[in-house]
Design a protein around this nucleic acid. Sequence first.
DNA 1: TTGTACGCGTTATCAC
DNA 2: GTGATAACGCGTACAA
Lengths: 380, 380
Amino acid sequence: MGDDKSARRPTVYDVAEAAGVSIASVSFAFRRPDQLSEATRERVLAAARRLGYAPSAAARGLARGRTGTLGLHAFDLLLERAEPVAESKHPLAGLHTPRLAERRLIEWSETDDDVLADPRAFPLYVDEVQRGFELECWALGRPVMLSSGNNSDVSVADTAGRVDGLAIFPSEQTSPTLARYAPTIPIVLFSILPADDPHHRVRVDNVGGMRDLADHLVTVHGVHDVAFVGRREASDSAQRFDGLCEGLATHGVRMRTEAIDATVRGDDELIPQLGALHAAGRLPRALVCATDQHAFATLDALAALGVRVPDDVIVTGFDGTLAARLSTPPLTTVRQPMEAMGRAAARILAGAAGAPPEDGRPFDVVFAPRLIVRGSCGCA
Amino acid sequence: MGDDKSARRPTVYDVAEAAGVSIASVSFAFRRPDQLSEATRERVLAAARRLGYAPSAAARGLARGRTGTLGLHAFDLLLERAEPVAESKHPLAGLHTPRLAERRLIEWSETDDDVLADPRAFPLYVDEVQRGFELECWALGRPVMLSSGNNSDVSVADTAGRVDGLAIFPSEQTSPTLARYAPTIPIVLFSILPADDPHHRVRVDNVGGMRDLADHLVTVHGVHDVAFVGRREASDSAQRFDGLCEGLATHGVRMRTEAIDATVRGDDELIPQLGALHAAGRLPRALVCATDQHAFATLDALAALGVRVPDDVIVTGFDGTLAARLSTPPLTTVRQPMEAMGRAAARILAGAAGAPPEDGRPFDVVFAPRLIVRGSCGCA
DNA sequence: TTGTACGCGTTATCAC
DNA sequence: GTGATAACGCGTACAA
């Protein structure tokens, strides 16, 4: 317990000495059990057990040239999701103060708004994809490394150095940064159109999904006055915008592109714009949002203006998150097969590490999304 | 593109050669930027960028003795949660077949039950705790390593070999296995009572939570006939059972311990037992479940028997998962501050690695849960 | 300020 | 079947 030796992690040398064999035999006992005599193998394993020996993954990784783990990186996650908690009002403020040392109960702060789980904050699109990635990795017997960073460069490089393959959620400056690590390890990009780079792709058919939605709005609800809510710079949003335009065009419907500024981000900017349209009596019949998150912001803004959904205005989303089932009214949306997408990324990375597609070109896996019809368009 | 050199991951040697400096300067350029002249630093960084150099975490870990990452391990996750998908009906069956090579759209299979997110499967208690752990790790700038395994020994040892600190979700055979790695890295156990070991603890006051619930049931609903649903072997469940007994006892109410077998796991075993009680007219007034999951199974079983909740029988849960808000009726439950618990674990590991509590004893952080009253007990 | 040399704990290639 | 010994890529005294 108290002696110096036990504080250090036991190594092959310790085990070898304890078992009276060479370090090679120790290694063989674990990696090539059949190349050792029954006797020595048992002797080694017994000594290892006795010493609490755990092979160092770092050393193995160095020697073999592969870490055995797969990574998932998200840019700007802290920004796009929960703000980092201010230290003073951190739920664990004082974790290292006497408060903790005295082992006292930690009460929830009275202002804590974490009392109820908020489905609008979790799980989001990325969370469900991440879960699929994790499930597949575990099924494959591989640990998962998660990372996130606004500083796109160093954080990705750091993660890239720890894994055999890396899946990445997009951000606006994703590609330039990534190009560098491509020759190093296989990389999967979510939700980005293929381009002339070696990265794999896992994405949904945004255009097809929006076409289905446009069909529904026009043929079932007779909508012929539509505006789009979403930032068109984002890769996904741009495709969805295009898909919506195409879908409407086949029915001879043209989109009101001027109605909503294409750069709005959330409630703050949405309320004044919708308010102005409302005041002018020029609200479109349907507001098609680029994501469920945009749709929630739109619903909130409309509610604040006293506009009824779907009676006055139809609102739709995209993604099919859990929260879309729980909004008022429930959201008509286009659901992505998020778990399957996460699993696909993991499979590609696990396989591509050993056997890339024979034509040498990267994978481009496109999933078909599915229209989910709910109350916010007037159905049900 | 096609030459042999670029296939290999660039190392410090490659960068040093390209920049015309020694490997030490390369290392310094990243780790001690201020100890290099502006000129050489820029030269090195430029070369690194050009080559796509990413420092090997394995090598760094070996050299420095620490990996810089924190780990979260869950035993039996694949068993307790989704079964591993059978290969034939895997959503990605054929990922490496022509189907993919031809870059065709992947349709969801017609039998796919993943069309809607199922809140009963995700997010669970562990998912919300995990999210807190991740958020805190990102705030601390540390990557997270996730692992899961039924083979308790090797998988934990493997993960333990890759991280500086490890948080662990409990399982029945957790402790014996862990004892070995304790001297190596700090370990946080969720939901386990303190014992004579060096592991840290993060948990809720199960007894207090159940007492609050008992108070509510007795004083508000006049309940005096209660049975417990849950496997008492589990550490958490045992404490909750005790807390319930205590809480009822203060009101002179005694629990029907014989009503439900203490080993039931799910619907299959619950329906016959509840059915027998129902047939005999001996159903308790309230079924207090050890977890929300047990409560859902109980609700299902009662519904199948035609028993009304809460009119005929009151049902309550424990955990406060999102799904508890969505059940029919909504579930009265005791919510744990899951995100905060995950954050606490990360903070302990990040801090404990450098500064363990001065008295040398491990942390024992106990959070107070909160009673959430909903329809399943007759309120609201 | 920059370069040399060694150690970290494995795996793998040889001899024996 | 078993034992030396050389990589593996990086951090870091120490020397220059």
